[in-house]
């Protein structure tokens, strides 16, 4: 019976997040017992974003992410961008590294990335890579703004074509 409730609760969370209007039902912040949360690994369906071989548009794909600590879900969601089973899709973040993704007060998500030169993309690849990050993390209702840093630094551009906004807001993905 307890299991059923838990399952039902998770299902609601999943549906809510997938629909883009997440409710606080599964939010650990309201639970108040961190150590209990750490042990219960959660699975979440999210949309991850890739591009087609024209490198013209974002293509979304459903992915499961697993995390024990609720705080880790942003990083897990971003890491989902680095792999796909669909050979037709082009991964925009395959060789770049997400070092951290921390939600601060007021819904400000700080993402720290490492961009090795080998992973530099062309103009459209860069633009789509940024859009993929924004669309992915803005699935979480609590995220209000996103600041992408490179090795902890606020830089002009990730790969030299598109300027970074510090920070991006929800308007940025319109």
């Amino acid at each position: 019976m307890r299991k059923m409730t838990l399952l039902l609760g998770m299902l609601i969370t999943i549906i809510a997040i997938a629909a883009g209007c997440g409710q606080k039902s599964g939010d650990p912040e309201t639970g108040g017992k961190p150590e209990a949360q750490q042990h219960a690994e959660q699975t979440l369906h999210i949309q991850a974003y890739y591009t087609d071989d024209q490198i013209l548009n974002l293509v979304q794909e459903k992915k499961d992410i697993k995390f024990a600590d609720e705080k880790a879900k942003y990083l897990e969601a971003l890491k989902a961008l680095q792999s796909t089973d669909d050979a037709k899709l082009v991964k925009l973040w395959q060789e770049n590294e997400f070092q951290s993704a921390i939600l601060k007060d007021g819904g400000a998500l700080i993402i720290d990335v490492k961009i090795p030169a080998e992973a530099h993309l062309g103009a459209s690849g860069e633009d789509l890579a940024i859009q993929a990050v924004l669309k992915t993390v803005f699935q979480f209702e609590e995220v209000q703004s996103v600041d992408i840093l490179v090795d902890g630094q606020s830089v002009d551009s990730l790969m030299g074509h598109v300027e970074l906004e510090h920070p991006y807001t929800r308007k940025s993905i319109m």
Binding site: D53, I55, V90, E95, L121, G122, A123, G125
Partner: peptide
């Protein structure tokens, strides 16, 4: 002037 890059060698 730029040259392009993507992690898919066939493009």
């Amino acid at each position: 002037i730029h040259a392009n890059s993507i992690n898919k060698a066939t493009i």
